[in-house]
Simulated assay, not measured.
Amino acid sequence: MQNQAVKYANERKLKMLFDSHAHLNDESFDEDREEVIASLKEKGLDYVVNPGADMETSKTAIELANKHDFIYAAVGVHPHDVENMTEADIELLRKYALENEKVVAIGEIGLDYYYDLSPRETQKKWFKRQIELANELKLPFIVHDRDAHGDTMEIIKSTKAAETGCLLHCYSGEVELAREYVKMGCYLSIPGTVTFKNNRKTVEVVREIPLERLMIETDSPYMAPVPHRGKRNDPSLVTFVAEKIAYEKGISYEEVCRVTKENAMKFFGIK
């Protein structure tokens, strides 16, 4: 792995990456956001998608995207924050998407049964409603699924949502579930946790699922990959995700960068 790491470090200087999920409007970037963003191009980043997590961060995601040509936005309400969601919020999300060309998806939306910060029935209601909005707008959507694999799959199947584009962000399920999503036409996004020593489940997904159905992400500022684990994550560190996928698949770092970037550009409709 050490020799491979040297090889990848040399290749990295020439290859461009697409971070499909980063929260650059998070408060942890408040003191140095512009410096971090300014450094990304020279570190190999071609594009970043910055999703909203609530109504306020959906708005600031758009503002950030409009300020930087290589950053795009998604708008939506995370399951943690749907308890007080209303139809007025759906109307505002619709307005954001229709009036801003840099909005390329609805998200992140979904179910979180780990923290249960919103009642589960409420989570399911607004997950379905936001998928309906994505379908109406003919936009893809980005799914948050934590400890809710069965209900997430059931809702996606029942809404025929994969037809407009479905991305399982920070995929954490078993490989069998991953195969089902791929059959449905969904994409899976691999985060920095794939580099964690005991994360055999995600490694198995990487090995088994075709590269043509994978994207890479940081979920910045969270879940920084090894060797930066425990520190603030940022989009430049997506390179370590690409390296790990290349190593596990036995293919070149260059191919991982190229194909995952092509996948993301196609999914988000970026030309």
Rank of each mutant, 00 (worst) to 15 (best):
M153V: 11
S220D: 07
L168H: 03
Y253Q: 01
D46R: 13
N50W: 03
V259N: 02
A224Q: 02
A162F: 09
D112M: 05
I142C: 01
C170I: 01
G230W: 00
I37L: 03
T122C: 14
V203E: 14
E208H: 11
A224L: 06
G110M: 05
S20Q: 01
E101R: 13
E56Y: 11
P140R: 07
E212V: 12
R33W: 07
E254H: 11
R229Y: 05
H21C: 11
L45V: 15
I37S: 00
Q123K: 09
N199M: 09
M265T: 11
L214E: 03
E262N: 12
R33A: 06
P79A: 05
F29L: 07
D69P: 08
Q130P: 06
I156M: 06
N198A: 14
K160G: 15
E136M: 11
G192I: 00
L168D: 03
D145H: 06
D116P: 03
H144M: 08
I245E: 04
E132Y: 10
N3H: 14
E136F: 09
R12D: 11
I37Q: 00
V259H: 03
F268K: 02
E35N: 12
N3F: 14
E108H: 04
A162H: 10
Y72V: 02
R129A: 15
I106S: 03
F70I: 05
G269H: 12
Y181K: 07
V203A: 15
G44L: 05
R258Y: 09
P235A: 06
V75Y: 01
I71D: 00
L111I: 08
E108M: 03
M265I: 12
L214Y: 04
G76Y: 04
L237I: 00
K271L: 11
S172G: 09
T218V: 10
H78P: 01
